[in-house]
Computed example of a mutant assay.
Amino acid sequence: MSTNALNRRTFLASLSAAGAAAAALPTAAAARTGGDHRPAYLGSFSWTDPPGRGFDVASHDLSSGQLRPIRSLEGVPDASWLAFSPDRHVLYTTNELVPDGTVTALSLWDPRHPRIINTRSSRGAGPTHLSVHPSGRFLLTANYTDGTVAVHRLEVDGGVGESTDLVRHTSEPRAPHAHQVITDPSGRWVVAVDLGADAVFTYRLDTASGELHRNQRLSAPTGSGPRHLAFHPDGRHAYLLNELASTVTVLRWDAAAGTFELGESVSTRPPDAAGENYPAEIVVTRDDDCYVTNRGDNTVAHFKVSDRGTRLHLTGTTDTGGDWPRHCTLDRTRRWLHVANQNSGTVTRFSRDCTTGSLSQVVDSVEVPGVAVVAL
């Protein structure tokens, strides 16, 4: 694996062992947004060069798509993943690189000036992903270093309450590394993707007790390193992004039984691509477009979904204009794709053809040191 891929994981291990303190965060001058501008939120790492600020509030122009960071918020270190509550009144973030790992709840009643509600242990090291159950009553967190998934009950004000369960994945020969936890479109099943275990776990969440009960363990190809999964809006298929194999695997999803079935796998790279590559994020649209970030190639791969969700075809790749594209997201209009280039500390923007799904070259770029995730 490349030096870039190891940096974060080596840092996680050394930080956990040393019990180092979280990095302090500078604060930028506040600014106001208005008109067609809406708040956006940016999470970043403290260990990059230069170090990220942890959590930034940005202005997002809905008409032009332009993104502009305007202020940072102290006390939210290493925000590597962000997730909204169903009503978007609260934003939750992982604090990935602090000792032992924590999660933070932020009130968005004043969206331009988020306020910390509380911070609580994630019950594991290296929390790398979280999501809110559709009921709005539980927070689900994937702890990468420990290979665990934690459940926390949410308080009336959106704060993170007591943990109700912790499940630990097992695997050989590699240690488990839980990398994502989400709820399926039906709202009936919790799905956890584990990179170390080469597996996707499906659970039923008991909404009375807050406990997880395993329903299925789907084994991916050995050594493929599944990282993230995205469901098709049809609710019958999902697409599993494999970080170590640079592939996407089509999954058939039975929402009644809560089970996946493996389909075909396709490369995230063109046939002539060379060198190391570690895909990071996958986005699927209702009009059958799929986008994947390639760390190493530094591209966004564009796929078309066909045959009623069962097949993917790589139509091309677009240079991200930055280094190590970790996360990408479409805005609510689906006209703009924003890419977080972690190592170059930039968020680049692309226009999207809403008919063909094709992407333009880079439209613009903003500096956000150590950027890991963009939430619009």
Results as ranks from 00 to 15, higher is better:
residue 49 D to S: 13
residue 47 W to P: 09
residue 36 D to T: 08
residue 108 L to D: 15
residue 68 R to V: 07
residue 30 A to M: 05
residue 7 N to H: 13
residue 64 S to N: 07
residue 44 S to G: 11
residue 125 A to N: 12
residue 78 D to R: 02
residue 60 H to T: 06
residue 13 A to C: 02
residue 131 S to Q: 05
residue 66 Q to G: 07
residue 81 W to C: 03
residue 85 S to G: 08
residue 37 H to N: 09
residue 25 L to F: 02
residue 11 F to T: 11
residue 101 G to W: 06
residue 72 S to N: 01
residue 74 E to Y: 03
residue 104 T to M: 15
residue 54 G to L: 02
residue 48 T to C: 03
residue 45 F to L: 12
residue 6 L to E: 14
residue 66 Q to N: 13
residue 33 T to Q: 09
residue 14 S to W: 06
residue 62 L to G: 00
residue 86 P to F: 10
residue 69 P to I: 12
residue 32 R to C: 02
residue 59 S to R: 10
residue 75 G to T: 01
residue 112 R to H: 04
residue 53 R to P: 01
residue 74 E to T: 01
residue 96 E to K: 00
residue 34 G to M: 05
residue 122 S to C: 05
residue 25 L to W: 03
residue 129 H to L: 10
residue 73 L to Y: 03
residue 67 L to C: 09
residue 31 A to V: 05
residue 72 S to D: 00
residue 50 P to L: 04
residue 98 V to C: 07
residue 64 S to T: 13
residue 84 F to A: 08
residue 84 F to E: 14
residue 16 S to A: 15
residue 90 V to K: 08
residue 112 R to A: 01
residue 90 V to N: 12
residue 105 A to L: 07
residue 132 V to R: 08
residue 26 P to L: 12
residue 63 S to K: 15
residue 35 G to R: 11
residue 116 I to W: 00
residue 120 R to W: 08
residue 65 G to W: 14
residue 95 N to V: 11
residue 23 A to M: 02
residue 5 A to P: 02
residue 126 G to Y: 01
residue 4 N to W: 04
residue 94 T to S: 04
residue 74 E to D: 15
residue 31 A to Y: 07
residue 5 A to I: 14
residue 101 G to L: 03
residue 28 A to N: 04
residue 96 E to W: 08
residue 72 S to V: 06
residue 95 N to D: 12
residue 43 G to W: 05
residue 2 S to C: 07
residue 15 L to W: 00
residue 14 S to Q: 09
residue 82 L to C: 07
residue 58 A to P: 03
residue 123 R to H: 12
residue 43 G to Q: 06
residue 91 L to P: 08
residue 2 S to G: 04
residue 109 W to E: 13
residue 101 G to A: 10
residue 21 A to L: 13
residue 77 P to Y: 02
residue 6 L to V: 14
residue 73 L to W: 00
residue 51 P to M: 02
residue 8 R to K: 06
residue 16 S to F: 08
residue 49 D to I: 09
residue 15 L to T: 06
residue 26 P to S: 12
residue 79 A to V: 04
residue 116 I to A: 14
residue 18 A to R: 02
residue 62 L to E: 12
residue 83 A to K: 00
residue 28 A to S: 04
residue 37 H to Q: 15
residue 32 R to H: 11
residue 131 S to A: 10
residue 106 L to G: 00
residue 3 T to W: 08
residue 81 W to P: 01
residue 101 G to R: 02
residue 3 T to D: 10
residue 91 L to G: 02
residue 53 R to Y: 09
residue 132 V to W: 01
residue 103 V to S: 10
residue 19 G to D: 07
residue 100 D to Y: 14
residue 19 G to L: 00
residue 44 S to A: 15
residue 57 V to P: 05
residue 23 A to I: 03
residue 28 A to P: 06
residue 88 R to H: 14
residue 40 A to Y: 05
residue 98 V to N: 06
residue 86 P to I: 15
residue 115 R to V: 10
residue 66 Q to M: 15
residue 54 G to I: 02
residue 97 L to H: 10
residue 37 H to W: 08
residue 106 L to T: 01
residue 46 S to M: 00
residue 36 D to P: 07
residue 48 T to N: 00
residue 60 H to F: 15
residue 44 S to I: 02
residue 10 T to A: 14
residue 126 G to V: 05
residue 2 S to P: 09
residue 46 S to A: 13
residue 125 A to Q: 10
residue 42 L to W: 15
residue 88 R to M: 13
residue 52 G to D: 05
residue 10 T to G: 12
residue 114 P to D: 13
residue 106 L to C: 01
